[in-house]
Design a protein around this nucleic acid. Sequence first.
DNA 1: ATCCCGTTTTCGGCGCACCTAAACCTCCGC
DNA 2: GCGGAGGTTTAGGTGCGCCGAAAACGGGAT
Lengths: 210, 210
Amino acid sequence: MDSPAADDYLKTVYTHTEWQDAPITPSQLAAKLGIAPSSVTEMVKKLAAAGLVSHVPYGAVRLTDAGTARALAMVRRHRLIETWLVREFDYAWDEVHDEAEVLEHTISDRLLEGIDARLGRPRFDPHGDAIPDAAGHVAREAFVLLADAPAGHRGRVLRVDDRDPELLRALETAGVGVGRELRVTDTAVLLDGTDAALPDGADEVIWLTA
Amino acid sequence: MDSPAADDYLKTVYTHTEWQDAPITPSQLAAKLGIAPSSVTEMVKKLAAAGLVSHVPYGAVRLTDAGTARALAMVRRHRLIETWLVREFDYAWDEVHDEAEVLEHTISDRLLEGIDARLGRPRFDPHGDAIPDAAGHVAREAFVLLADAPAGHRGRVLRVDDRDPELLRALETAGVGVGRELRVTDTAVLLDGTDAALPDGADEVIWLTA
DNA sequence: ATCCCGTTTTCGGCGCACCTAAACCTCCGC
DNA sequence: GCGGAGGTTTAGGTGCGCCGAAAACGGGAT
């Protein structure tokens, strides 16, 4: 059970629980992968048979240790490739996702290692997502979703979800990027003391330090 | 009719006639691609229907103009990637083929352009094969296969076939590389005036200037 | 306690690229 | 001019990952 498709499932299950708690359901998996729910049932059955996920009928999907290891390897590939495209080929942070999505399945371990070495073994990608090291270890920091941050909260932007390029560009324009300090009031989000005028939906894709 | 598989067929048909005249037969195609002859029949039929190759039943396979354009694009990708791996990741010239074989299908036009620019738009790859430019133009020089070179012939190594890594390493050891000058006598091949002691089969993979 | 509705699964099916076995052409040697 | 060997094609079949339609499940609302 090793194929690009299987790797995509594992990676998607992993990233789902990276910034929230609830395990992923089959329909959520289908939506994120852009495929029919019935296809998910089928693939999940195979992954479960291979010991990569655990799944009881009509229940959620969880990674086993073996599945987590495989997922971490894919996440590492994806994020290293994104970092590399931004640093060495001047891709903007909203342009790297699709290319990385393909290359993560096709680059050899050797080339990946070469890229990692050349980049100086970075621990975070351009969106602030942690890059697992070759052994699968991940840097972690306490976080809160901007939408959940209470009035008065101050925090550094830890991470911006990379799935909506348009939103990413809007944030760029607004001056919001990984590392920037934000302050939450009950009516607005402040950047350098003034209203950041965030685009719609921004509070659902920005994570701050807790 | 555009798929990695189709591109592999087109590329293989193209490269077959790059250093010799006769058009490729279905069985030769099957052998080079490592698949069954019947699979070739099937795919060639589809390629012919798409106007990419011409083929009469029981006959050889030839590229149409459209097919040639597609083949040149693939050859360009393959050779640029090989060049890049050697120059920027210290791959040896016998190690690049497999990685390039995969990446040529998955790298975007944009990234390819970035690689081309970064390499300074090279016109030859590490084996001496010409890299078509983005418009499909190829540098060409008169050549002769070492096995066909008459006694007394002197020439610069234009190209070494890259399909046999073991042979490539043996040539490396013997000191034979692209650009080296060879002299053919009726009993030996001389490099710097002394017998180059070429490995078996070497004369079938080395091309010299005519 | 029951019903209902959204979620999940089952079922049959598709396209792709490949396979083997068997039938079929071609053309060379006699 | 014919037979046969070798190359080519046809026929039938496989695994993979996907689909839509319809059946089955199960948890919240009544």
